[in-house]
Design a protein around this nucleic acid. Structure first.
Lengths: 236, 236
DNA sequence: TTGTATAATTGTACCGGTACAATTATACTT
DNA sequence: AAGTATAATTGTACCGGTACAATTATACAA
């Protein structure tokens, strides 16, 4: 494991364990250097990670401070995208409605940048947070990249599997979101009514070399989904 | 202006002017070093900025590549938060419904971390993108930090003003979003019907020293608002 | 007490370097 | 043509350093 990641993790743990609050001051850079016995740039790198993650903010001439929003019940928008971690103490479970191999239609092949003749895994799941209906998700994985999936993997966490078992590293994702009304099938699955409000997010996940490998459409239960996004500058 | 910001801007311009597409390769690091006559770490910093912004991705052993999503009509979620730039060729205009000084209620004072006795500016605007109804926004600015606002400033861009004229630097923001149904007043302003779907985003903007100075609530017209978020790893 | 100049603190910009792992190109074999 | 070892390419991790601007603390004056 990389030094700066390790250090970032430890600092974050420290913050959580000591239940530090917004504005609380952390040890100064030089102190952290000594404490972890690494160079300045390594500490800087670790702190930068934490800053991006919304865990701290740094103020030159002053110090390093804890950043913490104060609204329980809001999930990070990014933590719900394919990852079962980072939901804090909440439990994410799934019902698998479908797991099959198929040929993609025009839209899917377009978004994944593959031919309509290539194989894709098709997965449909209902997801729950603490037992409450959270969203329905339909996703497509390029079979050439993710050659094998089974019900167990798909019930748990697909992303965990493809990273740990297949050694695939995920690079970045594009998420497209819009608000709309529920259609018949979605409404039935979410136990809501046709025409009810909903949030839809389409995501395209890319390997670190830029190849798309997963296209997914998530439809959220509007009453049980609220998200927080911690954004950073620079605001130019 | 900082070197690495300057370089980042120039590289981004280059990409746009030459209309490079996803996957196109940029000059290698060493070439960029020579080209801009700066050290490796400065180029690295510039590229890191662009990577965070979703403009490029880097692949070690291979090169630096252009990243570009291909859905016109989707606005970056962050560019619509207080900034009139970065909307591409789209035009953002506003109708100011109210601009007044008042005492904050409990909710507002809580979110801004001030007493209910402190003064705040209250602003209510309807916002249009290319003339189309986009959202209604109600925002509160701490008067002690932003001592003066007028109708002209508020019609244009508040953030531009407080940064350039007041020299205030914005640090970070927390955004809370959820989907719901329109209430009477919102529906009227957005020319929609009561109960129609909507996206609501509350934002708290902080100075770079962590002090909140702006709390705002935006209610979006669900038919004219679709957003893109370009996310980066690491996905652990 | 209140302001004000001065000094100490502290993170950031930028330089230059070494080592290395991941990728890609090349040469070689089968 | 297709695989395979080898070398060249290329970005990232990490080190250590100087200079500086923003903040905060200190000492002093009004």
């Amino acid at each position: 494991m990389l030094k700066y990641q390790q250090i970032a993790d430890e600092i974050e743990q420290y913050i959580n364990q000591h239940d530090l609050k917004q504005g609380d001051k952390l040890p100064v850079l030089e102190q952290l250097m000594r404490q972890y016995a690494v160079s300045k740039s390594t500490i800087t790198k670790a702190l930068e990670l934490l800053e991006r993650k919304g865990v701290i903010f740094q103020l030159r001439g002053s110090g390093i401070f804890v950043r913490r929003h104060n609204r329980p019940g809001y999930m990070s928008l990014f933590s719900t995208q394919g990852f079962k971690r980072n939901l804090g103490d909440r439990v994410l479970t799934s019902d698998v409605l479908d797991l099959s191999i198929m040929k993609p239609d025009e839209t899917v092949s377009q978004n994944l940048g593959i031919s309509t003749e290539a194989d894709v895994y098709h997965i449909e799941r209902i997801r729950y947070v603490d037992g409450e209906l959270f969203c329905v998700e339909e996703s497509f994985y390029v079979k050439e990249i993710v050659p094998y999936l089974n019900r167990e993997i798909v019930t748990d966490s697909i992303f965990d599997y493809i990273q740990s078992a297949l050694g695939i590293t995920i690079g970045f994702s594009d998420m497209y979101m819009q608000v709309g009304r529920l259609q018949e099938k979605e409404a039935r699955l979410l136990q809501l009514n046709i025409g009810d409000p909903t949030l839809r997010i389409e995501s395209i996940f890319h390997l670190s070399n830029g190849t798309p490998f997963d296209y997914s459409r998530i439809t959220y239960h509007y009453e049980h989904s609220q998200f927080v996004i911690q954004a950073n500058g620079p605001y130019l």
